[in-house]
Computed example of a mutant assay.
Amino acid sequence: MDIEIVNAVVRWIDSNCDKPLKIKEIADYTGYSQRHIHNMFKKIVGTTLGKYIRQQRLCIAATKLKMTSQPIIQIAYQLNYDSQQSFCREFKKMFRVPPNTFRKQDLWDFSSYIVPFEFDLPELPKILFDNLNEQKLFGYEVNYDTCFTHHINEINPLHIELIIKNFEIYQDTIFSLVDKRPSHTNKNLVSVTAFIGTKNSGHRPHQCLLQKNITPGLYLKTTFYGTWKEYGILISRLYRHVLPGYKLKRRNARDIEVFNYSDEISLSDTALFYCDYYIPVIR
């Protein structure tokens, strides 16, 4: 019973991290006294409620630094710090470098992220590490801006439509090389660039195709089978749970999606499909 209450508290915190949370509000949410919820939380999670909230806010800040061009002072105020100075001081304590340095680093270091506490999540698919060689792909590239979310990889409906459209065209395994970085047009948005294609240059007239190479090197890999909603949850967990859990650094290369061809895949909430997902990493 206690662990279920704490899990509900953690999810409530995750949804309200950008608000000035107080333990009294959390106690009111659960119906328990402040002292009881504080003791229960510390016993199960292993840290105090206040410290957990601060840590998760700083993890959100780190992700915003990498995925948006929001000024540091804006990020600080969004996460309820009373000044840029206090935010920078706390950030450096946790991530060992100032926010501006973290933003400019070529690698995205997940080793200081704190894995969110959740006990009732479904088991993850097997996590592997795979060295990929350079491979030529033929296809086309699309670009669009999307809203920032600290869950990192909620699947954009446009991306799903593009995958399905290319299944219909190619009737073959589809590769998607996805890059996410700060938008050039809006400091609050994330720019997504996706190269979508196959290994076969003969599917379309050559002049209509772009060539893109898979960046060689080490990748974290997992194989997924399920629905689009479950796929979005998986990618979020890879970034929020697996990369921090393994203390990994993400290389400056594109994530790779490899969709196995199926003539049954669709936009339906119940449609099932297979996909291998790769994240470029350094161990």
Results as ranks from 00 to 15, higher is better:
residue 254 R to M: 12
residue 161 E to H: 14
residue 282 I to E: 13
residue 208 C to G: 15
residue 86 S to R: 09
residue 29 Y to R: 03
residue 273 F to M: 04
residue 190 V to K: 08
residue 234 L to P: 09
residue 199 K to G: 04
residue 273 F to V: 03
residue 73 I to E: 06
residue 233 I to W: 05
residue 258 V to L: 11
residue 212 K to M: 13
residue 130 D to R: 05
residue 273 F to D: 01
residue 262 S to Y: 14
residue 251 R to N: 08
residue 149 T to R: 03
residue 265 I to A: 02
residue 67 M to C: 06
residue 70 Q to A: 07
residue 271 A to Y: 09
residue 6 V to G: 02
residue 85 Q to K: 15
residue 176 S to F: 10
residue 171 Q to F: 14
residue 272 L to W: 02
residue 41 F to H: 00
residue 62 A to H: 05
residue 105 Q to A: 12
residue 218 L to Q: 13
residue 90 E to I: 12
residue 37 I to A: 00
residue 39 N to M: 11
residue 141 E to A: 08
residue 158 L to T: 15
residue 164 I to T: 07
residue 273 F to R: 04
residue 107 L to Q: 08
residue 268 S to N: 14
residue 169 I to G: 00
residue 272 L to S: 02
residue 272 L to R: 03
residue 184 H to N: 13
residue 230 E to I: 07
residue 278 Y to L: 08
residue 263 D to L: 14
residue 224 F to V: 00
residue 234 L to R: 07
residue 49 L to E: 14
residue 232 G to Q: 08
residue 171 Q to P: 09
residue 5 I to Y: 00
residue 21 L to K: 06
residue 84 Q to P: 00
residue 157 P to I: 13
residue 276 D to N: 06
residue 131 N to A: 14
residue 217 G to P: 08
residue 19 K to N: 10
residue 174 I to R: 11
residue 280 P to W: 14
residue 153 N to W: 07
residue 168 E to M: 00
residue 169 I to K: 00
residue 21 L to D: 10
residue 212 K to Y: 05
residue 276 D to Q: 05
residue 249 K to P: 10
residue 98 P to S: 02
residue 32 Y to T: 02
residue 118 E to P: 12
residue 99 P to S: 06
residue 280 P to I: 13
residue 104 K to P: 05
residue 187 K to V: 09
residue 19 K to H: 10
residue 282 I to Y: 11
residue 206 H to N: 13
residue 159 H to V: 15
residue 104 K to H: 10
residue 33 S to A: 02
residue 55 Q to D: 09
residue 50 G to Q: 05
residue 66 K to T: 00
residue 125 P to N: 04
residue 251 R to Q: 12
residue 201 S to E: 03
residue 108 W to D: 00
residue 88 C to M: 03
residue 57 R to P: 03
residue 190 V to T: 10
residue 29 Y to H: 05
residue 71 P to I: 02
residue 275 C to G: 01
residue 124 L to T: 05
residue 41 F to G: 00
residue 205 P to K: 12
residue 233 I to Y: 08
residue 195 F to V: 01
residue 91 F to R: 02
residue 175 F to R: 07
residue 235 I to P: 02
residue 58 L to D: 01
residue 165 K to A: 14
